[in-house]
Amino acid sequence: HERALMVNRLQKLTRMLRVHPDPKWKQEQQELIKRLK
Rank of each mutant, 00 (worst) to 15 (best):
K34D: 05
R3E: 07
Q11H: 12
L5Y: 10
K24I: 11
L17Q: 02
M16R: 03
R9S: 03
H20Y: 14
E28W: 05
K34Q: 12
Q30F: 04
Q29M: 14
L10H: 00
M16S: 03
H1N: 13
L17F: 01
M6I: 15
K26A: 08
A4L: 13
I33Q: 03
M6H: 04
P23G: 04
L36I: 07
E31P: 00
K34M: 11
H20Q: 09
M6T: 04
E31Q: 08
L36R: 01
H20K: 11
K12Q: 15
Q29R: 11
K34G: 06
K26T: 05
Q29E: 06
W25G: 05
K26Y: 11
L13I: 09
E31I: 08
L10K: 00
R18Y: 04
L17H: 02
Q30C: 09
K24S: 07
N8L: 13
R18M: 12
Q29Y: 14
R35N: 06
A4W: 14
L32H: 01
K26L: 13
L10I: 07
M6V: 08
R35P: 00
R35T: 06
R3L: 15
P23A: 07
V19Y: 13
E28D: 02
Q11P: 01
R35A: 12
L17C: 02
K24N: 07
R9D: 04
K24D: 08
E28M: 06
Q11K: 15
I33F: 04
R35K: 14
L36G: 00
K24H: 09
E2H: 07
P23W: 05
L32I: 09
K12L: 14
K24W: 05
W25T: 06
H1Q: 12
Q30A: 09
D22F: 07
R3G: 04
L36V: 02
Q30W: 09
E31T: 06
D22R: 08
R18D: 08
V19F: 11
L17N: 02
L32S: 02
L5D: 10
R9N: 02
L10M: 02
M16H: 02
M6W: 05
A4C: 15
Q11F: 08
Q27Y: 07
M6N: 03
K12T: 10
K24P: 00
R3M: 09
M6Y: 03
H1G: 09
V7M: 12
N8T: 15
L17W: 00
H20L: 08
Q30T: 09
K34R: 12
K37C: 15
T14V: 06
E2P: 06
K37T: 11
K34A: 12
M6Q: 06
A4S: 07
P21Q: 12
K12S: 08
H20R: 08
A4N: 12
K37H: 10
N8I: 14
N8D: 15
M16V: 01
N8Q: 15
E2V: 08
P23Y: 03
V19N: 11
E28I: 06
V19S: 10
R35H: 06
E28C: 00
D22P: 00
Q11A: 14
D22V: 05
E2D: 10
V19T: 13
M6A: 06
Q27W: 06
L17G: 01
T14W: 05
R9K: 06
H1Y: 13
Q30D: 07
H1D: 14
I33A: 03
L32P: 01
R15I: 10
Q29S: 05
L13K: 01
W25P: 01
L5A: 14
Q11T: 08
L13H: 01
T14P: 00
Q29D: 01
W25H: 06
E31Y: 07
L13M: 01
N8W: 08
K12G: 03
I33W: 04
Q30N: 08
I33G: 01
W25I: 13
M16K: 03
E2W: 13
L36Y: 02
L36Q: 00
K12V: 13
Q29F: 13
Q30E: 12
T14S: 07
R9L: 12
R9I: 10
R15Q: 14
L10N: 00
L5R: 15
P23M: 03
K34W: 05
R9P: 03
R18I: 09
N8G: 11
Q29N: 01
K37S: 11
Q29P: 00
H20N: 13
L5C: 15
Q11V: 13
R3N: 09
Q11R: 15
L13F: 00
P21D: 13
L13V: 04
E28Q: 03
L32K: 00
K34P: 01
H1A: 14
K24L: 09
I33P: 00
L10V: 03
V7L: 15
L36A: 01
D22T: 07
L32F: 02
Q27E: 12
E28F: 03
K37M: 14
P23I: 04
P21I: 06
T14H: 05
K37V: 07
R9C: 12
L13E: 01
Q29G: 02
K34C: 14
P23L: 05
W25Q: 05
M16P: 00
P21M: 10
M16T: 01
Q30P: 01
